[in-house]
Computed example of a mutant assay.
Amino acid sequence: MIIGIPKEIKNNENRVSCTPAGVFALCKAGHKVIVEANAGIGSGFSNEEYQEAGAEIADVKEVFKRAELIVKVKEYLPSEYQYLREDQMVFTYLHIANDPEFAKALIDSKTTAIAYETVRDRKGGLPLLTPMSEVAGRMAVQVGATMLQKNNNGRGLLLGGVPGVFPAEVVIIGGGTVGLNAAKIACGLGAIVTVFDINAERMGYIDDISGGTIHTAYNNEYNLRRALKTADLVIGAVLVPGAKAPKIVTKDMVQTMKPGSAIVDVAIDQGGCIETSDHITTHDQPTFERYGVLHYSVANMPGAVPRTSTMALSNATLPYLMKLADHGTAALKADPGFLLGLNTYQGHITYRGVSEALGMAYTDPETLL
């Protein structure tokens, strides 16, 4: 199969979908890989490294024109919609539940689109979302700590405090991969950390592994309202795979927060779980203020640490990419968890969460493949 790896064009998106090591494995398996010139530069991988691994270097038009399978990191931007076509597969983070324009482009073009974020493993986990969730969770604390600095219009707090001075209070909404990784970093820096969740088993797990240093609380409106009044940093980490994130923190809750406190809405690529995170920001202009509270809502957070992120992502996606290259859509039929990654096919929406979020008809993929 001919596999195309284009350069990402989203604002400050320096990741690339496959490392030279991944390209080497694909070429050794008998596939042809075409990499757009300088696609890996932002992650520290040169054109020469890709060529040594067996890839051909080409311009963007050649990559999209010749490839049977396009492998990306982020969703297509409007300028890339022209490249979508019926006889091509796309494998990337789609996030179309929150992007009706892109969803329409995929449907109209009848492109076979497989989303990293909805693929499941045999245990029901999200193997292709997990590595980037780990990065985003850890980054959220770094970002939040910087936002709290006075020179950034924050409260002027050191997250972990110093002897004789109370540390900052960090509230994390959601105890999944993002939330747990954020909690580990915040706790390691010495902050007072509380994770809100609705899963008692998950809260018990967090309590056990942290030895009680990470506090947990049941996520209901009463508890959350009380916690937000004293919180210095709030991290939104709520995920509904393939669907829009629910608005857990309302506008009036934000209005009760302290001036100069900070919110990092990691769920923004799925619409955000904070009501006042009303638009996506970029790495160039990452923050804005609502009711005296600083907000960060960058949708491609791991793009700021591209070398780490690229290697982690490629490690996770390569086994699935190899299956697609070897067997095409038959690879989806053979693996129910992989089939859940299929979001659009032949003009149909084939993932239920996406259809519900967009208010469009759902088609069972098993009736189409």
Rank of each mutant, 00 (worst) to 15 (best):
L126F: 15
L126A: 12
L126E: 10
L126W: 14
P127S: 07
P127N: 04
P127M: 09
P127E: 08
P127R: 03
P127F: 11
P127H: 08
L128A: 01
L128D: 02
L128W: 00
L128N: 00
L128Y: 01
L129F: 13
L129Y: 11
L129H: 05
L129S: 06
L129N: 05
T130M: 09
T130E: 13
T130K: 14
P131E: 05
M132R: 04
S133D: 01
S133W: 04
S133E: 03
S133M: 06
S133G: 02
S133N: 05
E134K: 07
E134V: 02
E134T: 00
E134H: 04
V135N: 05
A136R: 05
A136G: 08
G137I: 05
G137P: 02
G137A: 10
G137T: 00
G137D: 01
G137N: 09
G137Y: 06
M139Y: 01
M139H: 04
M139N: 05
M139L: 14
M139F: 03
M139I: 03
M139R: 02
M139E: 02
A140E: 03
A140N: 04
A140P: 00
A140W: 00
A140L: 02
V141C: 00
V141M: 06
V141K: 07
V141Q: 09
V141W: 01
Q142V: 06
Q142K: 13
Q142N: 11
Q142S: 13
Q142H: 12
V143G: 08
V143P: 08
V143H: 05
V143Y: 07
V143K: 11
V143F: 09
V143T: 13
G144R: 01
G144L: 10
G144D: 05
G144F: 09
G144Q: 06
A145F: 01
T146M: 14
T146F: 03
T146S: 14
T146W: 04
M147S: 08
M147T: 10
L148A: 12
L148I: 11
L148D: 09
Q149T: 09
Q149S: 12
Q149Y: 10
Q149I: 09
K150L: 14
K150Y: 12
K150G: 06
K150H: 12
N151I: 15
N151V: 14
N151A: 13
N151Q: 13
N151M: 14
N152L: 14
N152D: 03
N152H: 15
N153T: 11
N153W: 14
N153H: 15
G154W: 12
G154Y: 10
R155L: 06
R155P: 00
R155C: 01
R155M: 10
R155K: 15
